[in-house]
Design a protein around this nucleic acid. Structure first.
Lengths: 209, 209
DNA sequence: GACTGTGAAGCCATTCACAGCT
DNA sequence: AGCTGTGAATGGCTTCACAGTC
Protein backbone atom coordinates (compact mmCIF):
# COMPACT_ATOMS: atom_id res chain seq x y z
CA UNK A 1 0.00 0.00 0.00
CA UNK A 2 1.60 3.18 -1.13
CA UNK A 3 -0.84 5.96 -1.90
CA UNK A 4 -2.13 8.19 0.83
CA UNK A 5 -5.70 9.00 -0.03
CA UNK A 6 -7.77 6.57 -2.09
CA UNK A 7 -10.89 7.95 -3.79
CA UNK A 8 -14.04 6.38 -2.45
CA UNK A 9 -15.21 5.74 -6.01
CA UNK A 10 -12.07 3.67 -6.53
CA UNK A 11 -12.82 1.53 -3.48
CA UNK A 12 -16.38 0.93 -4.66
CA UNK A 13 -15.11 -0.14 -8.06
CA UNK A 14 -12.52 -2.46 -6.52
CA UNK A 15 -15.37 -4.21 -4.74
CA UNK A 16 -17.17 -4.58 -8.05
CA UNK A 17 -14.05 -5.77 -9.88
CA UNK A 18 -13.53 -8.40 -7.19
CA UNK A 19 -17.04 -9.70 -7.67
CA UNK A 20 -16.54 -9.84 -11.41
CA UNK A 21 -13.27 -11.72 -10.97
CA UNK A 22 -15.06 -14.17 -8.69
CA UNK A 23 -17.44 -14.85 -11.55
CA UNK A 24 -14.51 -15.41 -13.91
CA UNK A 25 -12.98 -17.89 -11.46
CA UNK A 26 -16.28 -19.77 -11.35
CA UNK A 27 -16.23 -19.83 -15.14
CA UNK A 28 -12.73 -21.26 -15.13
CA UNK A 29 -11.13 -18.20 -16.77
CA UNK A 30 -7.42 -17.94 -15.96
CA UNK A 31 -6.33 -14.65 -17.50
CA UNK A 32 -8.01 -11.30 -18.08
CA UNK A 33 -7.13 -7.88 -19.51
CA UNK A 34 -8.09 -4.49 -18.11
CA UNK A 35 -10.22 -4.07 -21.19
CA UNK A 36 -12.23 -7.21 -20.45
CA UNK A 37 -12.77 -6.21 -16.83
CA UNK A 38 -13.80 -2.77 -18.03
CA UNK A 39 -16.42 -4.18 -20.37
CA UNK A 40 -17.63 -6.59 -17.72
CA UNK A 41 -18.38 -3.90 -15.19
CA UNK A 42 -19.07 -0.89 -17.42
CA UNK A 43 -16.10 1.42 -16.91
CA UNK A 44 -13.07 2.36 -19.05
CA UNK A 45 -9.95 0.22 -19.14
CA UNK A 46 -7.82 3.20 -18.13
CA UNK A 47 -10.01 3.51 -15.07
CA UNK A 48 -9.42 -0.11 -14.14
CA UNK A 49 -5.66 0.27 -14.47
CA UNK A 50 -5.59 3.56 -12.54
CA UNK A 51 -7.64 2.05 -9.73
CA UNK A 52 -5.28 -0.89 -9.43
CA UNK A 53 -2.24 1.37 -9.68
CA UNK A 54 -3.05 2.90 -6.30
CA UNK A 55 -2.08 -0.38 -4.72
CA UNK A 56 0.70 -1.81 -6.84
CA UNK A 57 1.46 -3.58 -10.10
CA UNK A 58 -0.58 -6.72 -10.43
CA UNK A 59 -0.41 -7.43 -14.14
CA UNK A 60 2.09 -8.36 -16.83
CA UNK A 61 2.63 -5.91 -19.68
CA UNK A 62 1.61 -7.33 -22.99
CA UNK A 63 -0.28 -10.14 -21.26
CA UNK A 64 -2.85 -9.04 -18.67
CA UNK A 65 -3.75 -10.22 -15.19
CA UNK A 66 -3.94 -13.69 -13.72
CA UNK A 67 -7.50 -13.85 -12.49
CA UNK A 68 -6.88 -15.65 -9.23
CA UNK A 69 -3.84 -13.61 -8.31
CA UNK A 70 -5.62 -10.31 -8.92
CA UNK A 71 -8.68 -11.54 -7.04
CA UNK A 72 -6.52 -12.41 -4.07
CA UNK A 73 -4.92 -8.98 -4.07
CA UNK A 74 -8.28 -7.25 -4.24
CA UNK A 75 -9.74 -9.30 -1.40
CA UNK A 76 -6.74 -8.41 0.72
CA UNK A 77 -6.92 -4.72 -0.21
CA UNK A 78 -10.62 -4.65 0.67
CA UNK A 79 -9.91 -6.27 4.01
CA UNK A 80 -11.90 -9.36 3.06
CA UNK A 81 -9.14 -11.81 3.90
CA UNK A 82 -10.65 -11.94 7.37
CA UNK A 83 -14.12 -12.05 8.85
CA UNK A 84 -15.92 -8.97 10.15
CA UNK A 85 -18.66 -9.07 12.72
CA UNK A 86 -21.60 -6.68 12.54
CA UNK A 87 -24.53 -5.88 14.80
CA UNK A 88 -27.92 -4.88 13.44
CA UNK A 89 -29.99 -2.39 15.41
CA UNK A 90 -33.64 -2.53 14.46
CA UNK A 91 -35.43 -5.81 13.71
CA UNK A 92 -38.06 -4.30 11.45
CA UNK A 93 -38.58 -5.44 7.89
CA UNK A 94 -35.31 -4.07 6.63
CA UNK A 95 -33.20 -5.17 9.58
CA UNK A 96 -34.66 -8.67 9.33
CA UNK A 97 -34.02 -8.80 5.60
CA UNK A 98 -30.39 -7.82 6.14
CA UNK A 99 -29.98 -10.31 8.97
CA UNK A 100 -31.11 -13.09 6.69
CA UNK A 101 -29.26 -11.89 3.58
CA UNK A 102 -26.92 -14.63 2.41
CA UNK A 103 -24.70 -12.32 0.40
CA UNK A 104 -23.03 -10.89 3.47
CA UNK A 105 -21.78 -14.17 4.89
CA UNK A 106 -20.47 -15.09 1.46
CA UNK A 107 -18.17 -12.06 1.56
CA UNK A 108 -16.95 -12.50 5.10
CA UNK A 109 -19.48 -10.54 7.15
CA UNK A 110 -21.14 -12.18 10.16
CA UNK A 111 -24.17 -10.79 11.91
CA UNK A 112 -23.23 -11.24 15.55
CA UNK A 113 -26.43 -9.88 17.05
CA UNK A 114 -29.67 -8.14 16.20
CA UNK A 115 -31.35 -5.86 18.69
CA UNK A 116 -34.68 -4.10 18.91
CA UNK A 117 -36.51 -1.88 21.38
CA UNK A 118 -39.92 -3.46 20.91
CA UNK A 119 -40.86 -6.20 23.43
CA UNK A 120 -42.86 -8.16 20.88
CA UNK A 121 -39.87 -8.52 18.58
CA UNK A 122 -37.51 -9.61 21.32
CA UNK A 123 -37.12 -13.36 21.47
CA UNK A 124 -38.20 -13.96 17.88
CA UNK A 125 -35.71 -15.87 15.76
CA UNK A 126 -34.16 -14.68 12.51
CA UNK A 127 -32.42 -17.71 11.09
CA UNK A 128 -29.79 -18.67 13.63
CA UNK A 129 -29.98 -15.61 15.81
CA UNK A 130 -32.52 -14.27 18.23
CA UNK A 131 -33.64 -10.68 18.55
CA UNK A 132 -32.42 -9.23 21.83
CA UNK A 133 -33.15 -5.99 23.71
CA UNK A 134 -31.08 -2.85 23.14
CA UNK A 135 -29.56 -3.23 26.58
CA UNK A 136 -27.46 -6.11 25.24
CA UNK A 137 -25.58 -3.79 22.90
CA UNK A 138 -22.42 -3.10 24.87
CA UNK A 139 -22.06 -6.71 26.01
CA UNK A 140 -22.50 -8.24 22.55
CA UNK A 141 -20.16 -5.76 20.90
CA UNK A 142 -17.54 -6.49 23.51
CA UNK A 143 -17.78 -10.27 23.59
CA UNK A 144 -18.20 -10.81 19.85
CA UNK A 145 -15.62 -8.25 18.85
CA UNK A 146 -18.08 -6.35 16.70
CA UNK A 147 -16.69 -3.46 14.68
CA UNK A 148 -19.60 -2.62 12.38
CA UNK A 149 -23.00 -1.30 13.42
CA UNK A 150 -25.93 -1.44 10.99
CA UNK A 151 -28.68 1.04 11.81
CA UNK A 152 -32.17 0.14 10.59
CA UNK A 153 -34.28 1.96 13.16
CA UNK A 154 -36.73 4.77 12.42
CA UNK A 155 -35.24 8.23 11.84
CA UNK A 156 -36.32 9.44 15.27
CA UNK A 157 -34.17 6.85 17.07
CA UNK A 158 -31.22 6.77 14.68
CA UNK A 159 -28.89 9.30 16.30
CA UNK A 160 -29.47 7.86 19.73
CA UNK A 161 -28.63 4.26 18.83
CA UNK A 162 -25.67 5.51 16.78
CA UNK A 163 -24.26 7.31 19.80
CA UNK A 164 -24.67 4.15 21.86
CA UNK A 165 -23.00 2.02 19.21
CA UNK A 166 -19.99 4.31 19.13
CA UNK A 167 -19.85 4.48 22.92
CA UNK A 168 -19.84 0.68 22.93
CA UNK A 169 -16.81 0.57 20.65
CA UNK A 170 -18.15 0.17 17.12
CA UNK A 171 -15.75 1.66 14.56
CA UNK A 172 -17.98 1.86 11.48
CA UNK A 173 -21.67 2.55 10.89
CA UNK A 174 -23.85 1.59 7.95
CA UNK A 175 -26.89 3.82 8.20
CA UNK A 176 -30.15 2.86 6.51
CA UNK A 177 -32.26 5.42 8.34
CA UNK A 178 -33.32 8.59 6.55
CA UNK A 179 -31.38 10.82 8.92
CA UNK A 180 -28.08 12.57 8.63
CA UNK A 181 -26.03 11.15 11.48
CA UNK A 182 -23.28 12.96 13.37
CA UNK A 183 -20.34 10.77 14.23
CA UNK A 184 -16.85 11.59 15.52
CA UNK A 185 -14.06 11.81 12.95
CA UNK A 186 -12.54 8.45 13.84
CA UNK A 187 -15.76 6.58 13.10
CA UNK A 188 -16.48 5.57 9.50
CA UNK A 189 -19.99 6.30 8.31
CA UNK A 190 -21.81 5.25 5.17
CA UNK A 191 -25.38 6.03 4.32
CA UNK A 192 -27.66 3.82 2.26
CA UNK A 193 -30.56 6.14 1.78
CA UNK A 194 -33.42 4.43 -0.01
CA UNK A 195 -35.56 7.53 -0.37
CA UNK A 196 -32.69 9.60 -1.74
CA UNK A 197 -32.06 6.95 -4.36
CA UNK A 198 -35.68 6.91 -5.47
CA UNK A 199 -35.74 10.69 -5.49
CA UNK A 200 -32.71 10.87 -7.73
CA UNK A 201 -34.62 8.65 -10.16
CA UNK A 202 -37.66 10.85 -9.83
CA UNK A 203 -35.55 13.95 -10.49
CA UNK A 204 -34.05 12.45 -13.60
CA UNK A 205 -37.36 11.17 -14.92
CA UNK A 206 -38.78 14.62 -14.39
CA UNK A 207 -35.84 16.66 -15.62
CA UNK A 208 -34.51 14.79 -18.61
CA UNK A 209 -37.90 14.42 -20.22
CA UNK B 1 -34.78 25.17 -14.78
CA UNK B 2 -31.82 26.66 -16.52
CA UNK B 3 -28.61 24.67 -16.21
CA UNK B 4 -27.89 21.83 -18.55
CA UNK B 5 -26.13 19.17 -16.55
CA UNK B 6 -26.79 18.88 -12.83
CA UNK B 7 -24.23 16.93 -10.78
CA UNK B 8 -25.67 13.80 -9.28
CA UNK B 9 -24.19 14.74 -5.92
CA UNK B 10 -26.21 17.93 -6.06
CA UNK B 11 -29.44 16.02 -6.67
CA UNK B 12 -28.73 13.73 -3.75
CA UNK B 13 -28.13 16.69 -1.49
CA UNK B 14 -31.31 18.41 -2.65
CA UNK B 15 -33.21 15.34 -1.53
CA UNK B 16 -31.52 15.57 1.85
CA UNK B 17 -32.13 19.30 2.15
CA UNK B 18 -35.79 18.74 1.39
CA UNK B 19 -36.06 16.21 4.18
CA UNK B 20 -34.34 18.57 6.57
CA UNK B 21 -36.71 21.38 5.60
CA UNK B 22 -39.63 19.04 6.21
CA UNK B 23 -38.35 18.59 9.74
CA UNK B 24 -38.11 22.36 10.18
CA UNK B 25 -41.70 22.75 9.00
CA UNK B 26 -42.78 20.18 11.58
CA UNK B 27 -40.90 22.15 14.20
CA UNK B 28 -42.68 25.32 13.16
CA UNK B 29 -39.55 27.07 11.89
CA UNK B 30 -40.37 29.77 9.32
CA UNK B 31 -37.01 31.01 8.12
CA UNK B 32 -33.60 29.42 7.63
CA UNK B 33 -30.12 30.39 6.39
CA UNK B 34 -27.84 28.40 4.13
CA UNK B 35 -25.54 28.10 7.11
CA UNK B 36 -28.22 26.47 9.26
CA UNK B 37 -29.14 24.02 6.52
CA UNK B 38 -25.46 23.28 6.07
CA UNK B 39 -25.00 22.46 9.75
CA UNK B 40 -28.17 20.42 9.79
CA UNK B 41 -27.07 18.12 7.02
CA UNK B 42 -23.30 18.25 7.35
CA UNK B 43 -22.10 20.19 4.30
CA UNK B 44 -20.74 23.71 3.74
CA UNK B 45 -23.02 26.70 3.34
CA UNK B 46 -21.41 27.56 0.00
CA UNK B 47 -22.33 24.08 -1.15
CA UNK B 48 -25.95 24.62 -0.20
CA UNK B 49 -26.10 27.91 -2.08
CA UNK B 50 -24.36 26.51 -5.15
CA UNK B 51 -26.70 23.53 -5.26
CA UNK B 52 -29.74 25.80 -5.14
CA UNK B 53 -28.24 28.19 -7.68
CA UNK B 54 -28.53 25.54 -10.40
CA UNK B 55 -32.27 26.01 -10.27
CA UNK B 56 -32.87 29.65 -9.45
CA UNK B 57 -32.80 32.22 -6.68
CA UNK B 58 -34.94 31.11 -3.78
CA UNK B 59 -33.67 33.24 -0.92
CA UNK B 60 -33.48 36.86 0.14
CA UNK B 61 -30.04 38.43 0.58
CA UNK B 62 -29.39 39.46 4.11
CA UNK B 63 -32.31 37.38 5.34
CA UNK B 64 -32.26 33.75 4.26
CA UNK B 65 -34.89 31.37 2.93
CA UNK B 66 -38.55 30.96 3.81
CA UNK B 67 -38.70 27.33 4.85
CA UNK B 68 -42.00 26.44 3.22
CA UNK B 69 -41.26 28.24 -0.01
CA UNK B 70 -37.87 26.59 -0.40
CA UNK B 71 -39.35 23.22 0.49
CA UNK B 72 -41.97 23.66 -2.20
CA UNK B 73 -39.35 24.51 -4.79
CA UNK B 74 -37.23 21.50 -3.88
CA UNK B 75 -40.15 19.09 -4.03
CA UNK B 76 -41.01 20.41 -7.46
CA UNK B 77 -37.39 20.22 -8.66
CA UNK B 78 -37.15 16.64 -7.43
CA UNK B 79 -40.35 15.75 -9.25
CA UNK B 80 -42.12 15.01 -5.98
CA UNK B 81 -45.09 17.25 -6.68
CA UNK B 82 -46.72 14.21 -8.26
CA UNK B 83 -46.97 10.53 -7.47
CA UNK B 84 -44.73 7.90 -9.05
CA UNK B 85 -45.67 4.29 -9.40
CA UNK B 86 -43.06 1.55 -9.02
CA UNK B 87 -43.05 -2.20 -9.51
CA UNK B 88 -40.96 -4.51 -7.36
CA UNK B 89 -39.52 -7.62 -8.95
CA UNK B 90 -38.54 -10.20 -6.37
CA UNK B 91 -40.63 -10.86 -3.26
CA UNK B 92 -37.78 -12.15 -1.14
CA UNK B 93 -36.85 -10.60 2.17
CA UNK B 94 -35.58 -7.38 0.66
CA UNK B 95 -38.37 -6.95 -1.88
CA UNK B 96 -40.95 -7.56 0.84
CA UNK B 97 -39.27 -5.08 3.15
CA UNK B 98 -39.31 -2.43 0.44
CA UNK B 99 -42.93 -3.18 -0.45
CA UNK B 100 -43.92 -2.55 3.15
CA UNK B 101 -41.63 0.42 3.74
CA UNK B 102 -43.75 3.41 4.78
CA UNK B 103 -41.14 5.97 3.86
CA UNK B 104 -41.78 5.62 0.13
CA UNK B 105 -45.48 6.41 0.22
CA UNK B 106 -44.71 9.41 2.39
CA UNK B 107 -42.58 10.87 -0.40
CA UNK B 108 -44.96 10.14 -3.24
CA UNK B 109 -43.94 6.67 -4.38
CA UNK B 110 -46.58 3.94 -4.77
CA UNK B 111 -45.79 0.30 -5.16
CA UNK B 112 -48.18 -0.72 -7.92
CA UNK B 113 -47.25 -4.39 -8.06
CA UNK B 114 -44.82 -6.95 -6.70
CA UNK B 115 -43.88 -9.97 -8.76
CA UNK B 116 -41.96 -13.16 -8.11
CA UNK B 117 -41.04 -16.28 -10.05
CA UNK B 118 -41.57 -18.70 -7.17
CA UNK B 119 -45.01 -20.40 -7.03
CA UNK B 120 -45.06 -20.50 -3.25
CA UNK B 121 -44.66 -16.73 -2.98
CA UNK B 122 -47.38 -15.98 -5.52
CA UNK B 123 -50.69 -15.21 -3.88
CA UNK B 124 -49.19 -14.18 -0.55
CA UNK B 125 -50.14 -10.71 0.64
CA UNK B 126 -47.74 -7.91 1.48
CA UNK B 127 -49.86 -5.28 3.14
CA UNK B 128 -52.41 -4.22 0.56
CA UNK B 129 -50.90 -5.94 -2.43
CA UNK B 130 -50.57 -9.52 -3.51
CA UNK B 131 -47.50 -11.14 -5.01
CA UNK B 132 -48.14 -12.00 -8.65
CA UNK B 133 -46.25 -14.05 -11.25
CA UNK B 134 -43.65 -12.47 -13.53
CA UNK B 135 -45.98 -12.88 -16.49
CA UNK B 136 -48.07 -10.01 -15.14
CA UNK B 137 -45.23 -7.56 -15.67
CA UNK B 138 -46.18 -5.98 -18.99
CA UNK B 139 -49.86 -5.75 -18.10
CA UNK B 140 -49.34 -4.14 -14.70
CA UNK B 141 -46.78 -1.66 -16.00
CA UNK B 142 -49.16 -0.66 -18.77
CA UNK B 143 -52.34 -0.37 -16.75
CA UNK B 144 -50.84 1.26 -13.67
CA UNK B 145 -48.60 3.61 -15.60
CA UNK B 146 -45.50 2.34 -13.85
CA UNK B 147 -42.24 4.14 -14.65
CA UNK B 148 -39.88 2.75 -12.01
CA UNK B 149 -38.73 -0.86 -11.68
CA UNK B 150 -37.13 -2.06 -8.44
CA UNK B 151 -35.00 -5.16 -8.89
CA UNK B 152 -34.57 -7.36 -5.81
CA UNK B 153 -33.98 -10.73 -7.47
CA UNK B 154 -30.81 -12.84 -7.15
CA UNK B 155 -27.85 -11.77 -9.29
CA UNK B 156 -28.39 -14.61 -11.73
CA UNK B 157 -31.85 -13.35 -12.73
CA UNK B 158 -31.17 -9.63 -12.55
CA UNK B 159 -30.27 -8.86 -16.15
CA UNK B 160 -33.14 -10.90 -17.50
CA UNK B 161 -35.85 -9.20 -15.44
CA UNK B 162 -34.25 -5.83 -16.17
CA UNK B 163 -34.50 -6.45 -19.90
CA UNK B 164 -38.14 -7.39 -19.51
CA UNK B 165 -38.87 -4.32 -17.41
CA UNK B 166 -37.39 -2.06 -20.06
CA UNK B 167 -39.19 -3.91 -22.83
CA UNK B 168 -42.41 -3.37 -20.89
CA UNK B 169 -41.86 0.37 -20.79
CA UNK B 170 -40.19 1.12 -17.47
CA UNK B 171 -38.01 4.25 -17.67
CA UNK B 172 -35.92 3.93 -14.53
CA UNK B 173 -34.42 1.02 -12.61
CA UNK B 174 -33.37 0.82 -8.98
CA UNK B 175 -31.11 -2.21 -8.74
CA UNK B 176 -30.51 -3.95 -5.43
CA UNK B 177 -28.94 -7.05 -6.93
CA UNK B 178 -25.17 -7.49 -6.78
CA UNK B 179 -24.81 -7.39 -10.55
CA UNK B 180 -23.73 -4.71 -12.94
CA UNK B 181 -26.71 -4.23 -15.22
CA UNK B 182 -26.59 -3.13 -18.83
CA UNK B 183 -29.37 -0.77 -19.80
CA UNK B 184 -29.91 1.41 -22.89
CA UNK B 185 -28.88 5.06 -22.65
CA UNK B 186 -32.41 6.36 -22.32
CA UNK B 187 -33.11 4.29 -19.19
CA UNK B 188 -32.02 5.69 -15.85
CA UNK B 189 -30.21 3.23 -13.59
CA UNK B 190 -29.21 3.45 -9.97
CA UNK B 191 -27.52 0.77 -7.96
CA UNK B 192 -27.94 0.20 -4.26
CA UNK B 193 -25.28 -2.35 -3.65
CA UNK B 194 -25.34 -3.59 -0.07
CA UNK B 195 -22.18 -5.65 -0.31
CA UNK B 196 -20.22 -2.83 -1.89
CA UNK B 197 -21.23 -0.57 0.96
CA UNK B 198 -20.10 -3.04 3.57
CA UNK B 199 -16.88 -3.62 1.68
CA UNK B 200 -16.09 0.07 1.59
CA UNK B 201 -16.43 0.02 5.37
CA UNK B 202 -14.21 -3.01 5.56
CA UNK B 203 -11.61 -1.34 3.34
CA UNK B 204 -11.56 1.74 5.50
CA UNK B 205 -11.41 -0.20 8.75
CA UNK B 206 -8.52 -2.13 7.32
CA UNK B 207 -6.66 0.68 5.61
CA UNK B 208 -6.97 3.62 7.95
CA UNK B 209 -5.91 1.67 11.00
C1' DG C 1 -24.81 43.88 9.62
C1' DA C 2 -26.38 39.82 7.70
C1' DC C 3 -26.81 36.61 4.29
C1' DT C 4 -27.51 35.31 -0.63
C1' DG C 5 -25.72 34.59 -5.29
C1' DT C 6 -21.75 33.88 -8.16
C1' DG C 7 -17.27 34.31 -10.83
C1' DA C 8 -12.69 32.67 -9.98
C1' DA C 9 -9.53 29.57 -7.89
C1' DG C 10 -8.43 25.25 -6.19
C1' DC C 11 -8.77 20.49 -5.98
C1' DC C 12 -9.72 15.92 -7.23
C1' DA C 13 -11.06 12.22 -10.38
C1' DT C 14 -11.14 10.59 -15.05
C1' DT C 15 -9.38 10.24 -19.62
C1' DC C 16 -5.69 10.47 -22.86
C1' DA C 17 -1.70 8.93 -24.91
C1' DC C 18 2.40 6.77 -24.91
C1' DA C 19 6.66 4.76 -22.84
C1' DG C 20 7.92 0.37 -21.06
C1' DC C 21 7.71 -4.73 -20.83
C1' DT C 22 6.93 -9.42 -22.48
C1' DA D 1 2.18 -6.98 -31.41
C1' DG D 2 -0.24 -6.59 -27.22
C1' DC D 3 -1.29 -4.86 -22.94
C1' DT D 4 0.14 -2.69 -18.57
C1' DG D 5 1.56 1.34 -15.93
C1' DT D 6 1.72 6.27 -15.66
C1' DG D 7 2.68 11.41 -16.40
C1' DA D 8 0.08 14.99 -18.58
C1' DA D 9 -4.20 16.95 -19.98
C1' DT D 10 -8.90 17.43 -19.23
C1' DG D 11 -13.15 17.99 -17.04
C1' DG D 12 -16.07 18.66 -13.15
C1' DC D 13 -17.22 19.52 -8.37
C1' DT D 14 -16.20 22.21 -4.25
C1' DT D 15 -14.40 26.04 -1.81
C1' DC D 16 -13.21 30.79 -1.64
C1' DA D 17 -14.13 35.40 -1.44
C1' DC D 18 -16.70 39.18 -2.37
C1' DA D 19 -20.22 41.97 -4.86
C1' DG D 20 -25.07 42.57 -4.43
C1' DT D 21 -29.25 43.14 -1.75
C1' DC D 22 -32.23 43.74 2.16
Amino acid sequence: MKAYKIPEATVMRLSIYSRYLHQLIDDGVKSVSSDEIAHGVGVSSAQVRKDLAYFGEFGTRGVGYKVEVLYGHLMKILGLDRRWCAIIIGAGKLGSALALYQGFAARGFNVGAILDASPDKIGTKLGEIEVEPLEMMAQRIEEKNITIGIVTVPASAAQEVTDKLIESGVKAILNFSPRVLKVPGNVILRNVDLSVNLEVLSFNLNYLK
